[in-house]
Design a protein around this nucleic acid. Sequence first.
DNA 1: CTTTAAAGGTATGGCCTTGTACCATTGGAA
DNA 2: TTCCAATGGTACAAGGCCATACCTTTAAAG
Lengths: 254, 254
Amino acid sequence: MIENGASNEATDTADPYAAVLRPVRSGNTFEETVEKVLQLIRLGLVPVGDRLPPERELADRLQISRVTLREALKVLQDAGVLEVRRGRYGGAFVLAPAPTPAAASGGAALRRRAEQLGDRLEDTLLFRQVLELGAAELCAARRPQGVEAERLQLLLAETGAASLEEYRRLDTRLHLAIAELSGSASVAAQYAAVRATVNELLDCIPLLTPNLQHSQRQHEELIDAILAGDQTRARVAMREHLAGTAALLRGFLS
Amino acid sequence: MIENGASNEATDTADPYAAVLRPVRSGNTFEETVEKVLQLIRLGLVPVGDRLPPERELADRLQISRVTLREALKVLQDAGVLEVRRGRYGGAFVLAPAPTPAAASGGAALRRRAEQLGDRLEDTLLFRQVLELGAAELCAARRPQGVEAERLQLLLAETGAASLEEYRRLDTRLHLAIAELSGSASVAAQYAAVRATVNELLDCIPLLTPNLQHSQRQHEELIDAILAGDQTRARVAMREHLAGTAALLRGFLS
DNA sequence: CTTTAAAGGTATGGCCTTGTACCATTGGAA
DNA sequence: TTCCAATGGTACAAGGCCATACCTTTAAAG
């Protein structure tokens, strides 16, 4: 006498549990920690030459033991991503990435990355769009004022004045700031994760000055709409901005 | 000689790492597993009286050992959420929730839950909105056809024909289906998690027939817009639909 | 030059989690 | 009635992760 009648409904086609029954953890603690630290670097939150927060603080904030954190740092050190110095004023410093023939390869590196992602590439781009459009709209709805508005304007100005090398890092910061000003920590956290993946792809293709100028004009329109509290305009501006990036990626992938 | 110049920029006001440096894991494996199983139940994916998938399958899909899964099931069994029977055709069956004085209490239980969530309440509602609006728009953009369109129409019809007791479960399934048809597994997974939390709150307040009818009219408009491929209309319809729920919750919370 | 505070480096014991194999129970099928 | 396959129940050893305490190094401060 198994009362299974109620469950045999419209969802029988697909796996009804698919959205819930995913891996509880995407790897062991140490692997996830490596990813977190790489996120800090890929997002440009810790620029090349700067150092990470002290081990004790990192372990504390990631809620892991220092032992496990150190294993992760060890791997990144061996990989040439970090340089660790002892003593006071020491720490883990971010090294310049090895000069890979990425940008000049005409998209070969990008295709490799995209293949590694597989099905998750489409997922990543769609999820990014949902988060980014939602963040822009929420941010506009809150209509930042005072220090928050000034922060956006400062980031906008810095991004506009950035060199080609700095642009992607400052662009990331501007977008992340919008996500944070959405008022939802979850939106900000998920965006940070997804943007780190996107940056990994973007770092495989060259950035051109015309693209940059076009992008910056869109930034100005976006921030203007946000500060005016115009949700619809903010969303439209963000959508156009994202369309540019998506077209860029698709162009190199096809 | 610490090269810290580049990092002292506009983001100094807030914690620049806040979006990344969050706990790697929100508890031990066993706790997260309990949450996952509760999600299955709160979302109505496994209705009262039905049984969960076998332990071996659950452990497999959650990527945890059977031992750990069993610890989680043991807790839920002791809490009176599950009844476990041995032998062939046995399994873990979902029991009816204890008749708490929830709905009749005029919002006391809701306030308690909301207090437990604390700051995460606002986060949850905002994150839900971002996901749900984004999912509706993406779903409309894909313009489901064939079996997908039929599935939506069937779920819509079932939800419309549902009794008061069944309504919330079928409503959840309809929304989850839209999230799945967004084409992004991340959107679906995040929505499932956030909706489980929202349901926990909604289960504290009574559902009235007028609300239900109003809600169903909005469902019809929403599905109509999605099947027509009208992204803007889908988004507007979803926004109005969510406004109703939000107003309901805020009404009971103030 | 000595001191000192802040940082990384190391060691130990215990709990959590896993993989694997096997046992026990049960209701339907033969 | 007997058998069997699906399901939950148990045991054990190995590895992962953690809290804690303590050691070592370094460069600025005095």
